[in-house]
């Protein structure tokens, strides 16, 4: 997008996507919001153990890319991966069941919240070691280029990831080999509990590093679904025609803390309030109404999404716990975990 420091590149008017696309973006964001609010609720009910890392407030990024990606493109996400999983079209129920540790879960309860994966949907994994998936996503891009498949690898990560070595190694690799990959930094201003600005030598943790790898400096309003959709198309197209990698810094904010353990008290009230006012979903709703969309259309989308999340929640709750027969399965490709004869 622009070389501006923030975030107002709203794409309305002539550059705006088709109405059907915009309604789809609205539906996607609504799905992510309603789904994750439900995850929050059922966590409080004790139905989800361990931890969760929600993307509440950051939905426009996953929605924009989910809308723009080809069905055989690949997503690589972090432990904050629910939104990216939903946005690739993975049904709610198996995700919900995975969070609850049920047999009907996406990975039958063997992965959990931080490892959501659905290969058949191109959701190639959620990785819980910060930065580890950046070279792995790069390897998928290597494979696409080698096989001339036209597929693009899209790798999502947080601002904190830009300070780990694997990020820099992989960016250099991707740039040297001109790989079909889009790196998407979701800069929510905090690496876990610490302001990213307090621990980073540059103002924009991703964009200000792009030049080091010969890449364009891209900053985009990560709370604007139209802007995200536009930059997704631009960078996916570039990758697909052999133009090499892109590094996007999408400015956003998480409405909740880092994880379930974190109330997020380290963030100033005024800052939180300012970003809540920039909530991607109500703002997009207003934009669609201003563009002449009938409110009943949006109401219906919201109602349909709420109903399908309700149904999924009940399906997940009805799924039994995983059987012990799974414990020793699938370490190896023969389905076993046998290491000796």
């Amino acid at each position: 997008m622009t070389e501006d420091n923030t975030a107002t590149a709203t794409v309305v008017g002539e550059g705006a996507p088709q109405l059907t696309t915009r309604l789809s973006l609205f539906r996607r964001m609504t799905e992510l919001r309603v789904f994750e609010k439900r995850v929050y609720d059922i966590f409080l009910q004790g139905l989800v153990k361990g931890t969760t890392h929600l993307s509440l407030g950051q939905e426009a990024i996953a929605a924009g890319f989910g809308e723009a990606m080809r069905s055989d493109d690949w997503t690589f996400a972090t432990y904050r991966g629910h939104a990216h999983t939903v946005s690739r079209g993975v049904p709610f129920a198996p995700i919900m069941a995975e969070l609850m540790g049920r047999r009907g879960g996406l990975m039958a309860g063997k992965g959990g919240s931080m490892h959501l994966t659905s290969v058949e949907h191109g959701m190639m994994g959620s990785y819980a070691i910060v930065g580890a998936h950046i070279p792995i996503a790069t390897g998928a891009a290597f494979s696409a280029k080698y096989r001339k498949s036209g597929q693009v690898s899209v790798c999502f990560f947080g601002d904190g990831t830009t300070n780990i070595g694997a990020f820099h190694e992989a960016l250099n690799f991707a740039a040297v080999w001109k790989l079909p990959i889009v790196f998407v930094c979701e800069n929510n201003l905090y690496m876990e509990y610490t302001a990213i600005s307090a621990v980073t030598a540059v103002e924009h943790p991703a964009a200000d590093r792009a030049g080091a790898y010969g890449l364009e400096r891209i900053i985009v309003d990560g709370n604007d679904a139209d802007a995200m959709y536009e930059i997704a198309n631009k960078t996916l197209d570039r990758a697909r025609v052999g133009g090499g990698p892109s590094l996007i810094e999408a400015l956003t904010y998480r409405h909740a803390g880092h994880s379930r353990a974190d109330p997020g008290k380290y963030r100033p009230d005024e800052e939180v309030a300012a970003w809540i006012a920039k909530d991607p979903i109500p703002n997009y709703r207003k934009r669609l109404l201003d563009a002449g969309v009938d409110e009943s259309v949006l109401d219906r989308i919201e109602k349909e999404v709420a109903e399908s999340v309700d149904i999924a929640t009940e399906l997940a709750k009805a799924s039994p716990p995983p059987g012990e027969d799974l414990i020793l399965k699938d370490l190896w490709s023969d389905g076993s975990s046998t290491w000796r004869n």
Partner: peptide, 13 residues
Amino acid sequence: QAILGTIMGAAMT
């Protein structure tokens, strides 16, 4: 890290 990540991503695809 990039070497091993690359072969992992290549192997899974």
